[in-house]
């Protein structure tokens, strides 16, 4: 591989943009395809589009009997946690171990302290002020855990508008009913509201903050691994 091409690929990855390296295994010739590229004249267009959705790498057989290696790079999954609360203190290290980039946002400076969240990207600011700079995308999950509409609602609105692959919110069914009414009044469409996982987390009977963190992380992984293509396709449409 040409070092210049490797640098290009790494730059795309650092910017959280999907890219596919196409290699001819016989000649070693390579090219880089970006998700934003116009694929209309590309003989592999259909395959490339499908690989951008699935994120799956591998060798493909071509009609002329030759083959091509597709090395697909999609951004690593990220979890943005709204609320520097007790559950988040357990969720942040668990999610980091599982390979996610973790960002915690909470405007309450008593909660969002580096002592409580060592090794995690932490913003002691309002979600509506921080999120535009974070650039939420379809490779990001948002878990709203403050239980405070002033903090959770703006983050949920932004997450749904950005096509995040997972959007979850803490609170009982009753709390969530009221939340739906508030967000609907702000103009969030019904279909988007249906995407919110609430009450948050898989139903494993989680009791403690750490157990709830397990339930939330498991639900995020389930959504990422079992339904990624659907989520991204519906958002792209």
């Amino acid at each position: 591989m040409d070092l210049a091409l490797l640098k290009e690929l790494n730059a795309e990855r650092a910017a959280r943009r999907a890219a596919i390296l196409v290699t001819d295994p016989d000649s070693g010739a390579q090219r880089l395809v970006r998700e934003a590229d116009d694929l209309s004249g590309d003989p592999l267009a259909e395959t490339l589009r499908s690989r951008f959705r699935s994120g799956k790498s591998g060798r493909i057989e071509l009609d002329d009997g030759s083959s091509a290696i597709l090395t697909v790079s999609v951004p690593s999954a990220r979890i943005v946690v709204i609320g520097a609360v007790h559950i988040s203190q357990a969720l942040a290290p668990m999610a980091t171990l599982a390979g996610f980039d973790v960002t915690v946002i909470d405007p309450r400076t008593a909660f969002a302290t580096p002592e409580r969240f060592a090794g995690v990207t932490l913003h002691a600011e309002w979600p509506q002020d921080v999120l535009p700079g974070i650039a939420l995308d379809p490779y990001t999950a948002v878990a709203a855990l403050t239980h405070d509409p002033k903090i959770d609602d703006p983050a949920l609105t932004e997450a749904l508008a950005s096509g995040c692959f997972y959007v979850g919110a803490l609170g009982s069914r009753k709390t969530h009913g009221k939340r739906r009414e508030r967000l609907a009044a702000l103009g969030v469409p019904e279909a988007a509201l249906d995407r919110i996982a609430a009450p948050i987390g898989l139903a494993i009977g989680a009791a403690s903050p750490a157990e709830i963190a397990v339930a939330v992380l498991a639900q995020i992984i389930e959504t990422l691994r079992i339904r990624p293509a659907e989520t991204r396709t519906s958002e792209a449409a």
Partner: peptide
């Protein structure tokens, strides 16, 4: 040198890519 898994059959420990 860069090595990349390009095909897997059956139970493979690391995925393609």
């Amino acid at each position: 040198a860069l090595a990349t898994v390009v095909d897997t059959w059956g139970s493979a420990p690391r995925p393609t890519g």
